[in-house]
Amino acid sequence: MKRFSIVAPSEKIVPALREKIDALTKPKGSLGRLEELAMQIGRIQQTLAPRLSCPYNIVFAGDHGIADEGVSLSPKEVTRQMISNFIEGGAGICFLSRQHGFRLRVVDAGVDADLSGVRELIGLKIRRGTRNYLYEPAMTLQEMELAVERGASVVRDCHAEGCNVIAFGEMGIGNTASSSMWMHCLTGIPLEKCVGAGSGLDAEGIRHKYDVLRRAMDRYTGDGSVEDVMRWFGGYEMVMAVGAMWQAAELGMIVLVDGFIMTNCMLAASRLYPDVLHYAVFGHKGDESGHALVLGELGARPLLDLGLRLGEGTGAVCAYPIVDSAVRMIGEMATFAGANITKYF
Rank of each mutant, 00 (worst) to 15 (best):
H159C: 12
C194D: 03
M139D: 08
F4C: 07
D157G: 07
G290Y: 02
P302W: 04
M230Y: 03
R309T: 13
G89D: 11
L256H: 03
R271F: 10
M1H: 14
C158K: 06
T130I: 07
E145F: 12
D68V: 11
E11Q: 13
S5N: 15
V229N: 04
P190I: 11
H208F: 13
E161M: 14
Y320K: 00
D223W: 13
S179E: 02
V78A: 04
E88T: 15
F60N: 10
V281S: 04
K125N: 09
G174H: 03
L17M: 10
N264R: 05
V257S: 01
G110D: 11
L191N: 14
Y344N: 13
M1L: 13
D22T: 13
V148D: 07
H291L: 02
M230K: 08
G283D: 13
L303H: 08
A152E: 00
L251Q: 08
G89C: 06
D275R: 01
R301F: 11
I206F: 05
I341Q: 13
I21C: 02
S270D: 09
A280P: 04
S325R: 02
A160I: 06
R127A: 14
R219Q: 07
R51T: 07
A339N: 12
G313D: 05
S180P: 02
E88H: 12
G174Y: 12
V154G: 00
P15D: 06
K76I: 14
S97I: 09
L24I: 10
T263W: 06
E250Q: 15
L124V: 07
Q40A: 03
E250W: 04
C265T: 12
H100C: 09
L104G: 10
V71E: 11
I166K: 00
E19V: 05
Q142S: 15
L115A: 10
L293P: 00
E143V: 10
Y210G: 06
V118T: 14
Q142I: 12
H278P: 06
E170I: 10
A49R: 08
L186I: 02
I6G: 02
W246N: 00
R309C: 00
D211R: 15
G235S: 12
L17T: 03
H291Q: 05
P75I: 09
G174S: 09
C185H: 10
L34Q: 01
L298P: 07
R33D: 05
D258L: 04
V276G: 03
S225Y: 13
K125S: 15
E36L: 05
